[in-house]
Lab assay of single mutants.
Amino acid sequence: MTGIVKWFNADKGFGFITPDDGSKDVFVHFSAIQNDGYKSLDEGQKVSFTIESGAKGPAAGNVTSL
């Protein structure tokens, strides 16, 4: 699925993605970002991701920028 990064705190390594389908915002951890180098996201960035079952509920996985 796709969405827009609502916010991401690079110091803490997590944030939230707002899915394009209008569903509830999804937690994203830096370890789910699939790019080389520094793993961070920018507010407003368009991303593709999967929904994984995290310890505290749904979380984004396999996050790639579009």
Rank of each mutant, 00 (worst) to 15 (best):
G54W: 10
P19Q: 03
D11I: 13
I17K: 00
V47P: 00
T64F: 08
W7Y: 08
V5P: 01
I51Y: 10
M1N: 08
D11P: 07
I33C: 04
D21M: 06
P19D: 02
D25F: 03
G22P: 03
N62T: 09
I4H: 09
F30C: 12
D25T: 05
K46I: 11
S31C: 09
K12I: 10
N9A: 08
G3H: 00
W7E: 02
T2P: 04
S48P: 00
F49V: 01
F30L: 08
V26F: 04
A55R: 13
A55K: 13
V5T: 03
Y38T: 11
E52R: 10
D25Y: 04
L41C: 03
H29W: 05
F27Q: 02
K6R: 12
G44L: 04
S31E: 05
S53I: 15
L66D: 07
D36W: 09
Y38P: 12
V5I: 08
G3C: 01
S31Y: 05
V26M: 05
T18R: 13
E43T: 15
V28A: 03
D21C: 09
V5A: 02
S48L: 11
F14N: 02
E52H: 13
D20F: 08
F8K: 01
S23A: 08
G57Q: 06
D11F: 14
W7V: 04
P19W: 04
P19C: 07
D20M: 10
A60R: 02
K56I: 08
Y38N: 11
S31H: 07
F27C: 03
Q34L: 14
S40Y: 13
A59L: 12
F49G: 01
D25N: 07
I33N: 03
F16T: 03
S40W: 14
S65I: 15
G13E: 02
G44A: 05
G13K: 04
S48F: 13
G37T: 10
N35E: 12
S65L: 15
G44Y: 05
F27A: 02
G3N: 00
S23T: 13
T2K: 07
T2M: 08
G3W: 01
G22D: 05
K56N: 12
F16K: 04
F49M: 04
S40F: 13
I17Y: 00
N9I: 05
G3R: 00
S53G: 10
T50W: 09
T2Q: 08
F27R: 03
H29Y: 06
A32D: 07
L66R: 09
W7I: 04
D25L: 06
F16C: 04
Y38K: 14
S65C: 13
S40L: 11
K39F: 08
G15F: 02
K12S: 08
I17S: 00
A60T: 03
K24F: 09
P19H: 03
W7G: 02
W7M: 05
I33Y: 04
E52M: 12
F14Q: 03
N35L: 12
V28C: 06
K39E: 05
G37W: 07
F14V: 06
S23N: 08
G61R: 15
F49Y: 11
I4R: 12
H29C: 05
G22C: 09
G61T: 14
F8A: 02
K12T: 06
D25A: 07
D11A: 14
D25P: 07
I51H: 05
T2N: 06
D21F: 07
P19L: 06
S53A: 14
G13Y: 02
G37V: 08
N35Q: 14
I51W: 08
A32S: 11
N62C: 10
N62R: 10
A32M: 06
D20R: 05
K39M: 09
D11E: 14
K39N: 07
N9S: 11
F27W: 07
N35F: 13
F30N: 06
V63Y: 00
D20N: 08
D25W: 04
D36P: 14
T50L: 08
Y38Q: 12
V28R: 00
Y38L: 12
L66E: 08
S23C: 08
K56T: 09
V28Y: 04
G44P: 01
F27H: 02
I4W: 09
L66T: 10
K6W: 03
S48N: 09
A32F: 04
G61S: 14
A59N: 10
T18C: 15
F8D: 01
L66P: 07
L66Q: 09
M1Q: 11
G13F: 03
G37I: 09
I33R: 02
A55D: 12
S40N: 09
Q34I: 14
K46L: 11
K6E: 03
F16A: 03
G15W: 01
F27E: 02
I17T: 00
F27L: 04
K56G: 11
G37A: 09
N9W: 11
Q34T: 13
S65G: 11
T64Q: 13
P19T: 05
E52W: 09
A60H: 02
T64N: 11
T64C: 10
Q45E: 13
L66G: 06
G54N: 11
V28K: 00
F49D: 00
F8M: 02
S23M: 07
G61C: 14
M1A: 08
G3D: 00
K12V: 09
K46C: 13
K12Q: 09
S53F: 15
F8Q: 01
M1I: 10
A59R: 15
A10F: 09
T64S: 11
D25R: 04
Y38M: 12
A59E: 15
K46N: 06
G57V: 05
S23G: 14
D36V: 11
V26E: 00
L41D: 01
G54H: 13
D36K: 12
F49W: 02
K12C: 11
L41I: 06
D21I: 07
